[in-house]
Amino acid sequence: VTLFVALYDYEAITEDDLSFHKGEKFQILNSSEGDWWEARSLTTGETGYIPSNYVAPVD
Rank of each mutant, 00 (worst) to 15 (best):
N53Q: 11
F20T: 03
E15V: 11
L7Q: 04
D17G: 15
K22R: 10
R40D: 01
V58W: 13
S41H: 07
E15W: 08
E33A: 14
G34N: 12
L29W: 05
A56Y: 08
I50C: 01
F20C: 03
D17C: 14
R40V: 11
T47P: 02
H21F: 12
A6K: 00
E38M: 15
W36E: 03
D9P: 06
E33Y: 12
L42M: 12
E38A: 08
H21Y: 11
L7R: 03
V55K: 00
T44I: 01
G34R: 12
K25A: 07
D35E: 13
A39F: 03
S19D: 05
A12V: 02
E11Y: 11
T14D: 11
T2V: 13
R40L: 13
S31E: 09
P51T: 02
T47H: 08
F26P: 00
F4S: 04
Y8C: 13
Y8R: 07
Y10A: 01
K22G: 04
P57T: 05
T44H: 04
W36T: 06
G34D: 13
T14E: 11
V55D: 01
T47W: 09
S52E: 04
S41C: 07
V58I: 13
E46K: 15
I28F: 03
S19N: 06
T44Y: 03
E11R: 08
F26M: 06
N53V: 09
H21V: 14
P51C: 08
W36P: 05
S31P: 10
D9Q: 04
L42P: 02
I28W: 02
E33F: 13
T43Y: 09
F4K: 03
V55T: 04
L3H: 10
E24W: 07
N53C: 12
T2C: 14
H21N: 11
E46M: 14
D17E: 15
V1P: 13
L3N: 06
T2E: 12
Y49S: 06
I13M: 14
A12F: 02
E38V: 15
I13S: 12
W37V: 06
E15P: 13
D35N: 10
E15T: 12
F20W: 01
P51D: 05
Y49C: 09
Y49E: 03
I28Y: 03
D17L: 12
T44N: 06
K25E: 09
T2M: 12
L3V: 14
Y10L: 03
D16A: 14
V1A: 13
I50K: 00
W37L: 08
